[in-house]
Amino acid sequence: MKILVVEDERKVGQFVTQALSEQSYTARLVGTVAAARDALAESPYDAIVLDLGLPDGDGLELLAEWRGAGFNEPVLILSARDAVSDRIQGLNLGADDYLPKPFSVDELVARVRSLMRRQSGVPRSTVLERKGVRMDLLGRTVTWDGRAVEFTNREFALLELFMQNAGRVLTRTLIAEKIWEASYDMETNLIDVYVRRLRRKLETTAGPPRFKTVRGTGYQLI
C-alpha cells in the first residue's frame, strides 16, 4: 500500500511518513504542489495525506484537480488553518477525512487505516465483542457477561466508537467530531462525563479499568 504525504514542513512530514512506515505502509514525502503533481504522474498511490498550506499553491486546488482527473483513492486533509470552513470546503471538494493541526500521529494512522479499510470494502460487523461486552448494532442492545445493560443514544454511539477502534487511542478531537459533529472543542468536560458514565456501567471497582485515560490526548478502550 503506497501513501503520498504532501507536507511542506519537513519535520512534520517525517513524523507522518515514519509512523506510516512503522505500520508497514510505503510512504513518500513531497513538499510542494509541483512535486506532488509529478509524484502522482509517476506512479499510482493508494491514499494521499494532503497539507493545505503549501509554498507554491493551495492543497485544495490540488485536490480539486485530482478529483477532476478521476483520482478516486482516499484523501485525508491535514490543515493548520481554520477548522470550520476548511473542513467543509475540503470535504465538499472530495476529501474523505480532515485532521486539524496539531494532531496526534496515532490518530492520523488510525484514520488512514480506517479510510483504506472503507476503500477495500471489508464489511463491518454488526456485532462487536470485547472482553465480555457484546454489542449488537442492529438490535441496539448491549450485554455484559450475558446481563443486559441500558444505554442512552449518545452513550451507545460513544461505546460503538470505542468498540470499533478497540485498543486504539481516541483523541478528544475525534470523539467530539464523530459523536457531536463538533469541529472544535466544545469547551466542556462533556466527553469525560460520558466516558465516566460508560465506566460506571461497564467497569467494576474490583476489576481492571476498561477505558484508559490517556492524559492530554483522549481515551483508549483496553
Binding site: 519535520k11 512534520v12 493541526k101 496539531p102 494532531f103 496526534s104 500521529v105 496515532d106
Partner: peptide, 11 residues
C-alpha cells in the same frame, strides 16, 4: 506548525 511538532515529539 510548531505546536504540531511539539505534540508529535512529546508523543
Amino acid at each position: 506548525t510548531p505546536l504540531a511538532l511539539m505534540r508529535l515529539n512529546a508523543e
